[in-house]
């Protein structure tokens, strides 16, 4: 018998999960025993660069994240449908027995993925995938010096001059 323990394969995952939980609990317990606890009101403040925090941070955030989550949900559900298809499609006996079956199977999935792609293109064109791109800022300073002077300075290449000090004499003096 290959499985003499009456533990199903998912039961073993449960065993794994229990071991993991025990490990986490032990670590928390040890930390509790060892670590000091001297809370002060200042210590328990939320961090905000040393300033006193203003307001709660449980606020409404940008709805575009919500749109991303919705699109993700659609894609994920469609993917769940493709997973079983791909395992059946890969069966070599079926593919080689009747070539038409392979083509039919592939066309079906291409239509399915095509609808998925249409959705992606729609979201793309609608601009939901666009994120704010920071525009480069060129700093400008009002000075009397014309820009050409700066350009000339920038284009200048630095020349290394030959160093010809009397090295030996210096050493001698020391």
């Amino acid at each position: 018998m290959s499985n003499p323990s009456q533990v199903t394969e998912f039961g073993k995952i449960l065993l794994f999960l229990i071991t993991g939980s025990v490990f986490v609990l032990i670590a928390f317990f040890t930390a509790r025993l060892l670590s000091p606890r001297k809370p002060t009101p200042e210590k328990l403040l939320s961090y905000e660069c040393g300033e006193e925090p203003t307001g709660s941070s449980w606020i409404q955030f940008n709805p575009r994240f919500y749109v991303i989550a919705l699109v993700f949900l659609l894609f994920d559900v469609e993917m769940v449908f493709i997973f079983p298809w791909s395992t059946i499609y890969a069966q070599q006996p079926l593919l080689t027995a009747e070539p038409a079956w392979g083509w039919l199977c592939l066309t079906e999935m291409m239509i399915f993925v095509g609808i998925l792609l249409l959705g992606l293109i729609y979201v793309w064109k609608k601009g939901d995938l666009e994120w704010v791109k920071p525009a480069p800022i060129t700093p400008e300073v009002k000075t009397g010096i014309p820009p050409a002077a700066y350009d000339r300075l920038n284009q200048q290449t630095y020349q290394v001059r030959k160093f010809d000090a009397p090295v030996k004499e210096l050493e001698h003096e020391r």
Partner: peptide, 22 residues
Amino acid sequence: SNNKYSLMGAIRAASQNISYEI
């Protein structure tokens, strides 16, 4: 955490992870 930085990090993590999961 109820901290602005933490919240931003969490939102970023969530949207990044779900995007790359697909």
